[in-house]
Structure formats: C-alpha cells, structure tokens
Nucleic acid binder design. Structure first.
Length: 516
RNA sequence: GCGCCCGUAGCUCAAUGGAUAGAGCAACAGAUUUCUAAUCUGUCGGCUAGAGGUUCGAAUCCUCUCGGGCGCGCCA
C-alpha cells in the first residue's frame, strides 16, 4: 500500500530534479529499523546513469519529497549512507490503516491493476492414465493460488485442465486393465500400478473417465475446481489439428521425410526437427499441442500461462517457435516450470514409478496430513525449486506445522473478539496506538496489498506463506505484551489483524478456523 | 555429450543487484495468579558448493569446475 504512495511521490519528485523517469529502481523495507520504514535506491541508480554523486542526489531528493508530502504521511524523509533515501511513516498514517482495513473487509489486499487482461491459466493436465502424484499436487496448488492472485490484482482469469485422452498411452492403459482382469501379466510397456486392478469401465473411454473422475475428486479434496476441462480428442474431431499442419505447411516450415511430415524446428533454434504427422498418418502430441495453444489464443485470451512439470521443459522452445511462426504473440505466453517433489519417509527416499506401482498418491498424502497442511506446504516454497517432502515429518509435526501457527493466530483473535462483550464504538480514538509492539503490527498489516501485488507479479505463492508466518509472529508478540480486552483501540487493531489473517488464508485456500 | 533448473545454518526453506544473509524445525536456557502455552523471550548455529569476473555494491548477473534433478522419441 505504501509502496504505491512512495512511487507516486517519486513520480513527481524526479522530474522536478531533472532526473530520468525510466529508472529501474526499487522501493523496499530496509533491513534495520533505524533506516526507516521504507527506502529507495533511486539515487544510486540515477547516479550511475548520469555519472553524478549519489549522495548529492539523495539529499536533494529527500528535501523535494518531504516538500511534496502534503498529507504528512512521513515524519522524516532523509538521505542515508551511499545514497539511499529513507522514509519514516507517521503513527497517524499507520493508525488510519486500521480504519481502511475494516472498511475494505474481504477486499482488503485486492488491488485494481491497470493491466486488466483476460488470462487463461492451464495447469495439472495430467494424463488420465493413473492417480495424481505428489508433484501434480504441488503444481495444482501453485496454479490455484496464482489464479487467486491474478484475480485479486484485477485480471479476468479462467483455469483449464487439458485432458490428454488421445494417443498411445491411453491405449496402453486399456490393454493393461484388461490384462490384469484376465489374470495375465500386463505388457512390458503397460501400466503395472496397483490402481490398475480398481479401474472401472468396459470401454477405453469409460476407463479414462473413471480415472479422470478420481483425479477430479482428489483436486476437489484440495479445494481446486477448474473452469474448463478441455479434451484433446475435441481438437482432433473438429479438424483443428489437421488445420494446423496445413497452416504450417502453407508457411513453408514443414517437409516430408520417411513418410512423415516434419516441422523445421532446427532452423528455429531447436536441437532437431520434430515430427508433426507420423508415417501412419496420425498426428503427434506436438501437433495437437500446437493446435491446442492456437485454439487458446483464438478463444480471445490476452495472455496465456501454463504450469508444466519439469519433465516437459525441453518442449517449451519447440512449442513457442511453432506458435511464433503462426503469428501468435508468444510474448504473451508464459510457461512456469514446476520442479518435482522428492518424497521421503523419514530419511528414505520413496521412488515414484507408475510402472511398479510403488508410489504414494496425492490422495494418500491429503488423507494423511489434511488439505490445509498439504496446501500450505506446497505453497510455501518456490515451485521452480526442488522440494524434499518428508511425509513422516509432516505427519509427526502436524501440530507444529506453520499452517497451524497462522491459523492459531486467527483463532486466538476470534476468541478475544468473542470475549470482549462490549460493542465496538463507531469513532474510536486510535491515537493511543504508538507502542513498539502496536506499531510493528500496524506496519505489518499495511504491507499486505504490496505482498499481494508482488506475489501476483512474480507468481510466488511462498511470499504469501512467508507473510502469513510473519504477521502471525508479530501478532503473537504483540499479544504477549499488550492486553486487548478493555482497550477499544487495541480491539480495533486486533479486528483488522483478523481480517488480514483471514484474507491471507483465503488467498492460500486454507481454512481460517475461529477456534482451535 | 548437449540443453533447462537447482546448490544458502545440522534439516526444510526465505531473501524484486542493495545497507550487518533471515525464518521454522532440531538443540540448549527461560517465561503463564489476567484475553487460547498450537504462544512468547533468549542462546547456539554461515567463507551463500568452489574459483575467477562485471560495479559504488553480488546469494542474486557472466565464465569455468564440482555435485544433484529433469529433458534430448514417429511417447505424452
């Protein structure tokens, strides 16, 4: 919230001092309290560009900014060491945040974005040939939260799951199921997991539908619903795959060899050329995927986001180069790569293999540690980093899990509010809120919109969990030192803390219990 | 071999090129006659895998080495 205010002030101050307006500076919270509530490095950046003394610029900027601060949001704005400009917020401004939070309620933290684009977010898209694994769970949670973040920052978002119900693997599934039922060994390249025995349905499509429904149920257990389930076979049935191959052919980026139609991807930076149509006339997955993304853009979306597992990362350039050739704006097509989860039971690595059937499913993990903890755990790390997930630890420590720490803060506040029988007065004098613990809490609360904005921009779900833990910690610390009941101003502060905690948990898709 | 991702405290992870690299868990020592102890306070713990480079400033950017994950199908 304050960052936008500071950025606006800088927007006025920079031209006043004849400084460039396109500087790549940042506004952040400095590491030490004595350095202020916020700081900017704009003078350092400007000095580098102009070959000037950063300290001199910082001093001029500080004076100019203070002059522009008509609403007296800041007590001091001053230059510091190499050339930072430090900002100190007034207590009055921070107290005003409480009123603001109560006014906004569930909308507190949401911000209107000027971007306002229609976004299609595709994620999970697991093959319908088996249960979801723990990696799917991680990517699913990431996608679901990113969707919430984008909606909260003014985007119109639709989520989609692409069902690969065409191809060799779905035939293998049916063969495997039938073999198992007949008491015969499944083929070498078939699916040997224990779940094969439980697949229902007579036809191949019924089996796929059965497994898809299991996947849907698992996702629903995590609170994840998709706006659209897109079936690959529709692309084929509607001739959209054939059309794409024709288009590429017309563009002169294909060639025939060994009876197959190839895409000249090597000319476009790929390691080798790729087959679009097989020798037997069936299109490859690649051809269908080009058609799929062509279709996405044609459905009127301004921006596409995919979350792909790391096992598909080698595929990114191939697909983008094809879409580029087709004239699509690939700068508005973003692919987030989700790294895998290594599952441990204690210190022992659990190998995940559908083939051997030795795998822990996502459903089992949810059953063991609960949806809230599962979501929080998966959200708590950068989806692009490897994650070592110890099931024993997650179970054993369930009471010390960070998710309970955050939830507990919420429950504690609900208890206080319940216990303070007096109705809150309308115009509470908040000016007494100026002790360090109170100030720390107010300051933390007012950063929430900035957290939402940055989490959305960077697609970082773990910023939300980090913030949740931090806010809970600041609250618990405040609670230890400041008695609330009987103090209307503190009660208002606590009420706005509850709203913020609730909204954090809401964004994470984790429940906010009123008692624990 | 080539490509992408990663390597930060004993463990799991943070840190939009910024100021003295932070949390949780584990370990140790304390705190409650009063609003939820699923809490709080303190201590211990680091040459950010290693070596160079870029600059006012590097965990972050570049090069190389080592180590790990994942790719490199007319599978999806």
């Amino acid at each position: 919230m304050s960052k936008a205010i500071i950025a606006a002030l800088l927007g006025k101050a920079l031209p006043e001092l004849d400084l460039p307006g396109d500087l790549d500076f940042v506004v952040n919270i400095p590491p030490q309290p004595h350095l202020g509530d916020y700081a900017t490095n704009v003078s350092l950046i400007a000095a580098k560009r102009l070959g000037r003394n950063p300290w001199q610029i910082a001093e001029q900027l500080a004076a100019s900014l203070k002059n522009l601060d008509k609403n007296n949001i800041f007590t001091r704005i001053e230059a510091a060491k190499p050339g930072f400009v430090n900002f100190f917020l007034t207590d009055t401004y921070l107290q005003g945040i409480i009123t603001e939070i109560e006014k906004q309620g569930d909308d507190w933290g949401k911000i209107k974005s000027t971007i306002g684009t229609k976004v299609l977010l595709e994620f999970v898209s697991a093959n319908p040939t088996g249960p979801l694994h723990i990696g799917h769970g991680r990517w699913a949670v990431a996608g679901d939260i990113i969707a919430r973040l984008l909606k909260a920052t003014g985007h119109e978002v639709k989520t989609e799951f692409y069902i690969n119900n065409v191809g060799n693997q779905v035939e293998k599934l049916a063969v495997s199921v039938r073999a198992r039922r007949a008491g015969e060994p499944v083929p070498e390249d078939g699916y040997g997991g224990a779940y094969i025995a439980d697949v229902k349905g007579e036809t191949r499509d019924e089996m796929l539908e059965n497994l898809l429904n299991q996947q849907k149920a698992t996702l629903l257990a995590l609170g994840i619903k998709f706006d659209n389930w897109f079936r690959e076979n529709d692309l084929h049935d509607q001739g959209k795959v054939a059309l794409i191959v024709t288009k590429l052919n017309d563009l002169g980026v294909t060639f025939n060899e060994e009876g197959a139609i190839w895409f000249k991807s090597q000319e476009l930076g790929d390691d080798k050329n790729r087959v679009l149509m097989r020798e037997d006339g069936r299109p490859t997955y690649f051809a269908a995927d080009i058609a799929y993304h062509f279709d996405k853009f044609n459905r009127g979306y301004d921006y596409l986001i995919n979350i792909w597992g790391t096992d598909h990362h080698g595929y990114v350039n191939r697909l983008k180069s094809a879409l580029k050739v087709l004239g699509l704006p690939i700068e508005r097509f973003e692919i987030i790569i989700g790294q895998l989860v290594s599952l441990y039971r204690g210190k022992e690595l659990v190998r995940m293999s559908k083939r051997t059937g030795d795998m822990v499913t996502l459903q089992e993990v949810i059953d063991e540690i609960g949806a809230d903890a599962t979501r929080f755990f998966f959200a708590a790390t950068d989806v692009n980093s490897h994650l070592d997930f110890d099931l024993e630890l997650a179970k054993k420590q369930s009471n010390e899990n960070p998710v309970y720490y955050v939830q507990y803060a919420h429950a504690r506040i609900c208890s206080i509010i319940k216990k303070s029988a007096e109705r809150r007065a309308q115009n509470i004098d908040l000016s007494s809120l100026n002790h360090p613990e109170e100030r720390a809490l107010m300051f933390k609360l007012q950063t929430w919109p900035d957290i939402v904005f940055e989490s959305a921009r960077l697609r970082h779900t773990h910023r939300l969990t980090e913030y949740g833990k931090e806010l809970a910690a600041v609250f618990h610390s405040f609670y230890e030192k400041c008695r609330v009941i009987g103090n209307p101003a503190r009660l208002a502060l606590v009420a706005s803390s509850r709203i913020t905690l609730h909204n954090i948990l809401q964004m994470l898709g984790v429940s906010a219990p009123e008692s624990m």
